[in-house]
Computed example of a mutant assay.
Amino acid sequence: MDTLVVPVRHSPFGTLTPLTARQRNGTRVGLAYSSIAALEAVQPAQPWIRLSEGALHALLSPLGVGTIQIDPQLIVADVRSTAPHRPICV
């Protein structure tokens, strides 16, 4: 796979941050999609950038995120937590 479609959020300072989520077991993962269509099927209107898998790993590894979930089928809010929106990928 040459490049991935990576969902991002914009910070108040104008930087882009790749989105992460937690698996059901609590493990934090990076999110990426194999195509724009795959991303839009799960997260319509989500801002995104293209990154190589290696570049995404390099961005996430200092945060302790060692796994990238490619084409997750469902992203939901963690309703068990009182903290702000924590996405869970399935």
Rank of each mutant, 00 (worst) to 15 (best):
N25K: 08
L39D: 04
S81G: 12
S35L: 00
G54K: 14
T15I: 00
T82D: 15
P62I: 06
A77L: 12
H57F: 09
C89K: 01
P47S: 05
D78N: 13
P12G: 14
S35Y: 02
T67W: 12
A77Q: 14
S34T: 07
A83R: 15
L39K: 01
V76E: 15
A38F: 07
A21W: 02
Q73H: 11
Q43N: 10
D78Y: 08
A83K: 14
G64P: 04
L31G: 06
L31S: 13
V90Q: 00
T27S: 14
D78M: 04
I36T: 11
Q46P: 02
I70N: 03
S11F: 12
A32P: 02
S52I: 08
P72N: 00
E53S: 12
F13M: 13
A55P: 05
P62C: 10
V42R: 04
G26A: 04
T67K: 12
I75W: 02
G66L: 07
L4F: 03
Q73K: 11
T67S: 10
V76Y: 14
R28L: 12
T27R: 15
I36V: 14
L16C: 09
P12M: 11
C89P: 02
R24G: 15
V79K: 11
L19D: 00
F13C: 11
V5K: 13
S61N: 12
T67M: 08
L16N: 10
S81C: 08
P12N: 14
N25R: 04
L31C: 12
R22W: 02
A55Q: 12
F13P: 06
E40P: 05
I70A: 03
V6M: 03
R28I: 12
Q73N: 11
P72W: 02
P18A: 07
V29W: 02
I75R: 01
L39G: 03
A37N: 07
P84E: 02
T27P: 09
R50V: 07
A38V: 06
V8F: 04
V76A: 15
I75F: 02
A41Y: 00
P18R: 05
L56A: 01
C89Y: 07
I70L: 08
I49Y: 06
S11A: 13
T20S: 05
R80T: 15
I68V: 07
P44L: 03
Y33M: 01
T20Q: 04
A58L: 11
L74T: 13
S52G: 10
G26F: 01
E40A: 10
L51G: 01
A83L: 14
E40I: 00
P62R: 06
V65E: 03
M1E: 09
L60W: 03
P72A: 05
P84Q: 07
Q46S: 03
T17M: 01
E40R: 10
A55L: 13
D78R: 09
A55F: 09
V29G: 03
A41F: 00
S34H: 06
R24S: 12
L19M: 08
S52H: 03
Q43R: 14
N25S: 14
L16A: 06
S34P: 04
L59R: 15
D71F: 04
T3L: 13
L60E: 01
M1C: 13
H10C: 09
R22I: 05
